[in-house]
């Protein structure tokens, strides 16, 4: 397979498209998966928790 313009375009239009669509689907599914909600809600509170400003032991 020669590394020329047509090859690069073909690669972008096939693999590139699948890559982005699949990654988007994975990302959206993971973010909106119902059982993940609790963890995200907990994580969101992290900056506002009033605690001692020191590392946990």
């Amino acid at each position: 397979m020669p590394f020329d313009h047509d090859t690069v375009v073909g690669f972008s239009k096939s693999f590139g498209l699948i890559y982005l669509v699949v990654l988007s689907v994975i990302c959206l599914a993971w973010t909106y998966w119902p059982s993940n909600k609790k963890g995200f809600d907990e994580a969101a509170k992290m900056p506002v928790l009033e605690e001692d400003d020191r590392p946990w032991r």
């Binding site: 990654l23 990302c27 909106y32 995200f40 969101a44 509170k45 900056p47 506002v48």
Partner: peptide, 27 residues
Amino acid sequence: YYYLPKRANRPIFSYRMSIISFWGITF
């Protein structure tokens, strides 16, 4: 994403949206 919620003393409106934004801009 850290200092604004901290200063306003309110958690970020949507943590999920912050994740979508992250993968959106990195891709």
